[in-house]
Amino acid sequence: MTRPTANGAKKRKNGFTLVELMVVIVIIGLLGTVVMINVLPSLDKANVTKAQADIAQLKNAAEQYRIDNFAFPASIEALKSPPAGLAQPDRYRPGGYVRDIPNDPWGNPYQIRIPAPDGGPYEIYSMGADGAPGGEGENADITAG
């Protein structure tokens, strides 16, 4: 919109119209939607991969525990501090087998099962995003090979 000045020249008013602002907001919204559609599935995959890496680290610590104490730990906490009633407490590694026991990417504690359902001696697992046994997709239980 222009306004005439005192000498008759027209002066342009600076700024954006409502229509221009609405077009920009719609474009930003569309771009945000496209980005979210592409990023969210990657986040789910990253959480599963992190859980598998944590479980692999805990499995290594459990194997070291077994070598030192001739049995697998009855709980994940036994990897950080010696459990009560340990047959030979002097065999427990000073400082434990892990510095910290992480939670899974969804904030739930990792679990250990002795024996494992597949016939193995033990299994360390996460219950997935829902924090409940079983499930499908992101909610499925996660173990590391």
Rank of each mutant, 00 (worst) to 15 (best):
N7K: 11
N7E: 08
N7G: 04
G8I: 05
K10H: 02
K10P: 00
K10V: 01
K11Q: 05
K11V: 06
R12Y: 00
R12V: 06
R12F: 01
K13S: 12
K13T: 11
N14S: 14
N14M: 09
G15M: 09
F16G: 01
F16T: 03
T17F: 05
E20H: 10
L21V: 11
L21N: 13
M22R: 04
M22G: 01
V23W: 05
V23L: 14
V23F: 08
I25Q: 13
V26G: 06
V26I: 14
G29S: 12
G29H: 10
L30D: 02
G32S: 15
G32N: 13
G32R: 12
T33R: 09
T33K: 08
V35G: 12
M36G: 08
I37Q: 15
I37S: 14
N38D: 09
N38T: 14
V39Q: 15
P41I: 10
P41D: 10
S42P: 03
S42R: 15
S42A: 13
S42K: 15
L43S: 11
L43C: 08
D44T: 15
D44I: 12
D44L: 10
K45P: 07
K45V: 08
A46F: 12
A46W: 13
N47C: 10
N47G: 07
V48T: 15
T49M: 11
K50Q: 14
K50T: 12
K50C: 03
K50F: 04
A53S: 14
I55A: 03
I55Y: 07
I55W: 06
A56C: 08
A56F: 10
A56M: 10
Q57P: 00
Q57V: 07
Q57T: 12
Q57S: 14
L58W: 11
K59D: 09
K59M: 13
N60Q: 12
A62V: 05
A62F: 04
E63I: 13
E63S: 10
Q64V: 02
Q64P: 02
Y65R: 00
Y65K: 01
Y65P: 00
I67P: 04
I67M: 06
N69Q: 01
N69C: 01
F70L: 07
A71I: 07
P73F: 09
P73V: 06
A74K: 13
A74L: 10
S75I: 05
S75K: 14
S75H: 10
S75W: 03
S75L: 08
I76W: 07
E77T: 12
E77D: 13
A78F: 09
A78L: 04
L79T: 02
L79P: 02
L79W: 03
K80R: 15
S81C: 03
S81A: 14
S81E: 10
S81L: 11
P82T: 06
A84V: 08
A84F: 06
G85L: 05
L86C: 03
L86K: 01
A87C: 01
A87I: 04
A87L: 07
A87S: 04
P89A: 05
P89V: 05
D90K: 12
D90G: 09
D90R: 10
R91M: 03
Y92A: 00
Y92R: 01
R93G: 01
G95K: 11
G96I: 02
G96W: 00
Y97Q: 03
Y97T: 02
Y97R: 02
R99E: 12
R99Q: 14
D100L: 13
I101L: 15
I101T: 12
I101P: 08
